[in-house]
Design a protein around this nucleic acid. Sequence first.
DNA 1: GCTGCTACTGCGCAATGCGTAGTACTGTGC
DNA 2: GCACAGTACTACGCATTGCGCAGTAGCAGC
Lengths: 109, 109
Amino acid sequence: MDSSQLLKGVLDLAVLAVLAERDSYGYDVVRRLREVGLEDVGDASVYGTLRRLFKAGALTSYVVASDEGPHRKYYGLNDVGRSLLQTSAKTWTSFAATMNDLLKEVDPG
Amino acid sequence: MDSSQLLKGVLDLAVLAVLAERDSYGYDVVRRLREVGLEDVGDASVYGTLRRLFKAGALTSYVVASDEGPHRKYYGLNDVGRSLLQTSAKTWTSFAATMNDLLKEVDPG
DNA sequence: GCTGCTACTGCGCAATGCGTAGTACTGTGC
DNA sequence: GCACAGTACTACGCATTGCGCAGTAGCAGC
């Protein structure tokens, strides 16, 4: 199984979790996700997710000038985003628990 | 977050896990998945997954007559299916661990 | 023979991650 | 000052895959 399919429906959650730590911009979110182990995330996916979440009203956005390149579009969680994060985290946790239950019977010895 | 998106990329694994326990047919797989907690799986999704996995050479298939309805198309794991299950289970487990790491910093409370 | 349960198939849709290309700004080396 | 690399973001179209809905079909009980 290609892990890219696993990302479906979870990238939002991962991005929200990263932003909960501190405000950030696309390029940096990609780096941080890769650092924590999500090595295969494409940059376009992250930018797309950021835009979707912003459009959905879960993020704030502000532009900051940068020393080392073009301006940066920072994103941060607002109340909607924080509650979305909590809800999604719970959904994920219970889903993951269900899957682990299902799998433990077939775990390789 | 709608849990249906979480299923993407995991339904294969769930179906393989259920079949690992014992051979089964579509209608029954749906019931068993719902029993373990995957309440929202659509029947068409499961039948589609079964066909995809069969076409991919991971499943065997044989038809058995039934007392309570039309014939049943049983599916079972072959070697390809079993190794796919092991691989997918490992991928899932490590992915889930990564996500849990990411989330524990923002866990409510 | 109509209804309901069992069992499967087919079609088209929607969501979403990905690849590729393109825009644009900054600093470095020549 | 120009090419180039690194940073930062946008746009377009594609592939995968789960879902909804409709359709086919067998069997049981009334």
